[in-house]
Design a protein around this nucleic acid. Structure first.
Lengths: 194, 194
DNA sequence: CAAATTGTACCAAACGGTCGGTTAACACCA
DNA sequence: TGGTGTTAACCGACCGTTTGGTACAATTTG
């Protein structure tokens, strides 16, 4: 049983609660004072735990990355590789539904906002997308080998396109505040899994 | 032959040149002083032509929207509806290739950065995506009627997914600085057009 | 000339970040 | 058990800079 020091708890809480602000307003759009107001942690404490704003942002991305890959694995339910992919698609839709299609995807948001200006952010986000794509591509390859999927399909190409369409769909659903934009993309993607 | 006053020229030039900055660094990431330095226009002149920063941003989006729909129409070359869609996909890829996959799509970038915080921005960007989707869906419907496309396909669903995958693909190509990320998405999309 | 356009000095507010000082928790020893 | 030293944890006033924006005189243009 691990014991968490007071400091570790505070740090973790700031990471979790500041993430909400960044999802809602972006990284540049979230000020240190907003983070202070929202978390209740004082400026001195904040800068005790994080060297600067970038460092805090990076920690938030790391935390979100770990959480996402956990979510990804947990979502892969089913007996066959293809069933697992289908179940993942449902899980993504549910997750966005739960947050009412607001906020979108932290990685997509930050990629577009920061990747050109912050090398480290870009590299971390890229590793999320490549890891995600590779995991799906692996399942699709299994499905192809097992005859669940047409022998002519290219697993990596398909996985890339699925991830791209999901990210685009999340963006459009957020923009239009209309759930069907993401739902439509996902149901169209399901048609490719045959 | 219309005559452009000096003021109109200045205004148009600011819109065009400030857009480059915003594509590179985002809207919040681009300061008024950066715009002044980059365009050479002085602060007084800038605020003579635009009421405030938001107004400038909105004008840039309007200008980009008009340019994009022009690009869209010009790209639809070919004898059949389906050929036109194919030719559009090639044009998008060429366009991103020409800018070396840097900067991505202004609308996608701004959508994620600003749509939640600025109602007007969001509405304009949404109209770009819906116009784009509708145009493609119309062509796909024609293609379906003409027997070029499988009778079972849903034109609107497919068009939405294409736009979503293109936006996602542009984002990933920008992130990875790897052209193949967008190329792969587009070639996968082409497989759906049969 | 009047109107349109531009240059420059200036502003308050907000920004990210620093720093000297205070408090709270735990280990050590008598 | 009670006192003491150490340090992790936290506080908030303050800093220099940059922000978006204004005022207004000077100049160009039609």
């Amino acid at each position: 049983m691990t014991h968490y020091t007071k400091g570790e708890q505070t740090r973790a809480r700031v990471i979790r609660e500041a993430r909400e602000l960044i999802i809602a307003n972006g990284f540049k759009g979230t000020s240190i004072s907003q983070i202070i107001d929202h978390t209740g942690v004082k400026k001195g404490a904040l800068y005790f735990h994080f060297a600067n704003k970038d460092e805090l942002g990076y920690s938030i991305l790391q935390d979100a990355r770990d959480e996402f890959f956990g979510f990804l694995e947990r979502s892969l339910a089913g007996d066959s590789p293809l069933q697992k992919v289908h179940s993942f698609l449902s899980a993504i839709l549910d997750q966005q539904k739960n947050q009412h299609f607001v906020g979108g995807c932290l990685f997509g948001n930050t990629a577009l906002e920061m990747s050109d200006s912050n090398e480290r952010f870009g590299a971390l986000i890229l590793s999320v997308f490549t890891g995600w794509i590779d995991r799906l591509a692996g399942l699709l390859e299994e499905a192809r080998q097992g005859g669940e999927l047409d022998r002519g399909t290219n697993p990596l190409l398909l996985a890339k396109t699925m991830v791209a369409a999901i990210e685009g769909g999340i963006m459009m659903a957020r923009l239009s505040k209309n759930r069907s934009d993401l739902e439509d993309c996902i149901s169209q993607l399901r048609l490719l899994l045959h």
